[in-house]
Design a binder for these strands. Structure first.
Lengths: 248, 248
DNA sequence: AGACTTTTAAATGTCAGACAAATAGAAAGT
DNA sequence: ACTTTCTATTTGTCTGACATTTAAAAGTCT
């Protein structure tokens, strides 16, 4: 672990990278205690605040956790699925909101990935996954639901579908794709008619999953994608036309 | 943005969360300059080092960038795909290496997601995607290639396949799944015979993509998954038997 | 001896002030 | 008009200090 004081990246960034490499390479194992801040400062020949900034960088990525007190210090953190989910969702959401990703592109990615889960979910889903899906469908059919609540329920429905595959790695990868869509979906108003269509498709999808028919589930997801993208393009077209009308 | 000095989470963590929320919610837009560290310290009623630790947390997630000098400061960063990829890969790799995810689970997730890309890639792949795939196949066929180099080439091959879909969101989501597998793959030794099989399957896959036959590409990916998992379980079984033999 | 209380040491969390380095803009000179 | 110098601002880093938390060691009482 060598540090170059002349490197424009900054000392704390270099130290953070060095420790990160040690963790990723396996030189530092889970729950291992790092040297104290003072010792690290000595080793790297920098001051304690600089070391602290480096440690905060790692803490922000959940790579380490810190504990105060006599036996405290910085410990290599076991990256829990929950932490990884949260990071994944934040990153995905920002990526979509900041890069002018078109609704179509995001939608296509999401449904393509979900279709990948469908056969596995049809095969392995437990009763509670089905129960969650059915419950969310009921919620979505309720009149007077706000668009936001409708979208949130939609996300919950699809997460149940994904989790049904019983593969935590898949669930992790999909979490970002599904949740990051929510802000984009929230920009769309769902008419009573379109909600009916979606609820019908969700029901057909849940039926396919219940029947353990993966192929049918994939087809229903394709239908849902077509419906969602068609509805979204209608909404955007209407909005554009409205804007032009107001302008004239 | 209110800060509670009694909160055990720590002042810097709270400040980081407050700014993060402002960015995610859109209150702070891309390229907007945050107040200087001194001003932030005043606003939050904390010292400058505390503010700095908070800013480093955000910088570690590529949410902000800092610039020195007269007109310098902290700016809201446009999260580039490249940065997001890197984070995604790091997180995925750690998630797999730290949580005793079985080879089968990771492999299943990876190939399921890749199959989702296959139809899109078959439809849209540009000539250079195909060229990359062919080039990597040639590399994989070279004798004397180390296992690591073989795995790296495998990753490059599959990335070209994924990128062929022309959907950056999909590429982003898949980057983690494909790259994170590499450390797991590196634990496997590939015999000349298994390499031959893989190269043949890769060739068939590239042929399917070239012929714009998405269904065939999905089937070839299925074959590749079967081969990979079968070979891996053989290697693990042999290793286990070897260990027991040595023990007796 | 055993259980409880107090002390102590070690570590992180925070603060204050200072200086160095980089950078852009203003001011001065040619 | 152009170039150079100066200056103000801001981040990067250092030094030193104190507060807080925590667990273990030391001490005390029954």
């Amino acid at each position: 672990m060598k540090i170059d004081p002349e490197n424009p990246a900054g000392l704390s960034a270099q130290i953070a990278q060095a420790i990160k490499d040690a963790i990723v390479s396996g030189a530092l194992i889970v729950d291992e205690r790092l040297p104290s801040e003072s010792e690290l400062a000595e080793q790297f020949r920098v001051s304690r605040p600089t070391v602290r900034e480096a440690l905060k960088r790692l803490a922000a990525q959940s790579l380490i956790r810190t504990q105060r007190g006599a036996t405290g210090g910085a410990f290599v953190n076991r990256l829990a699925y929950q932490d990884a989910y949260a990071q994944q969702i934040t990153t995905s959401t920002l990526l979509l909101s900041m890069n002018a990703v078109s609704f179509d592109t995001a939608c296509e990615a999401r449904f393509a990935l979900e279709r990948a889960c469908a056969p596995l979910s049809a095969e392995r889903r437990a009763p509670d996954h089905l129960a969650t899906m059915r419950a969310e469908i009921l919620r979505q059919a309720q009149p007077g639901l706000t668009d936001e609540a409708f979208c949130a329920s939609d996300v919950a429905f699809h997460r149940a579908l994904v989790d049904g595959a019983g593969n935590p790695v898949l669930s992790y990868q999909l979490a970002g794709a599904v949740e990051a869509m929510q802000p984009l979906m929230n920009m769309i108003t769902f008419t009573a008619r379109s909600r009916e269509t979606i609820v019908a498709l969700h029901t057909a999808l849940a039926d396919a999953i219940e029947a353990r028919d993966g192929q049918a589930a994939m087809q229903r997801l394709g239908d849902l994608e077509t419906e969602t993208r068609g509805h979204a393009s209608d909404v955007f077209a209407a909005r554009k036309a409205g804007a032009q009308t107001r302008r004239t």
